[in-house]
């Protein structure tokens, strides 16, 4: 069954007089546990799509069903709750809070969700151990390497056990070897059942995914799961 179902999604930006169709006529369904790479040239709408999937943005038209529930009509607070419990974000620039330690950064989503400190501490400790960060618990982001920072970010994104993990160019700020480590980590999480959606323009990473979505000018040009699509011929 589809964890994500997009139908007729439109997203239009107005920049002064010009109108940018960041997403047009998008119909995609993603099943639970899938490993999807969203690819395409810069400006093709990949991040816009990911932000919509993560409920950070609303479509101008179309419907979005997450785990069988229409989430576009939810109130902002209800959307926040969905982001808190069902969605995990990994960003290109890590987005760690600089004044907080690795452990505090990992615990942040639980703190925002109002989980008691004792339970948080225990779960953070376990997560840091799982991600090989137990020696770094009290380090601040500026005391961590790029790879360690992204691992903290992934630990943070998964601490609430979300249904979907969204990663926007997660290796964009990392060297090749560290980037590969991070991809392996994400794939491991996918193997344990988490739906994984990665935005990348790195073909090497893209081809590792079970399914590729190719974006161009806000349209879905190619979906490897639908090989019969017209774009596949070109």
């Amino acid at each position: 069954m589809s964890v994500i179902q997009l139908a007729g999604i439109e997203r239009v930006f107005h920049l002064g007089d010009s109108v940018v169709h960041a997403l047009t006529g998008l119909d995609v369904a993603i099943d639970a546990g899938e490993y999807v790479a969203i690819m395409g040239p810069s400006g093709s709408g990949k991040s816009t799509l990911l932000n919509l999937l993560g409920l950070l943005d609303r479509p101008d038209a179309g419907s979005y069903q997450l785990e069988g529930r229409d989430v576009t009509t939810l109130s902002p607070d209800e959307q926040a709750a969905v982001r808190s419990r069902r969605i995990g974000f990994v960003f290109q620039s890590f987005h760690l809070v600089p004044r907080l330690t690795a452990a505090e950064n990992v615990g942040l989503p639980m703190m925002l969700a109002g989980i008691p400190a004792a339970e948080r501490a225990q779960r953070v400790q376990q997560a840091l151990k799982d991600f090989g960060l137990d020696q770094r618990a009290d380090h601040r982001p500026d005391q961590l390497s790029g790879g360690q920072r992204q691992r903290v970010a992934i630990a943070r994104a998964t601490i609430m056990q979300p249904a979907v993990l969204l990663a926007d160019e997660p290796t964009g700020n990392l060297d090749r070897a560290t980037g590969d480590d991070v991809i392996h980590l994400l794939e491991e999480l996918n193997q344990r059942g988490m739906t994984l959606i990665i935005v990348t323009h790195d073909p090497k990473i893209g081809t590792r995914a079970k399914r590729q979505l190719l974006m161009e000018d806000g349209e879905l040009r190619h979906d490897s799961a639908r090989a019969a699509s017209p774009a596949a011929a070109t």
Binding site: A80, R85, F89, H95, A113
Partner: peptide, 16 residues
Amino acid sequence: TAEIGLLKALGARAAT
């Protein structure tokens, strides 16, 4: 600002 965006992405409500 970036931190506020992050908090929202992590599920913080406006009131929080």
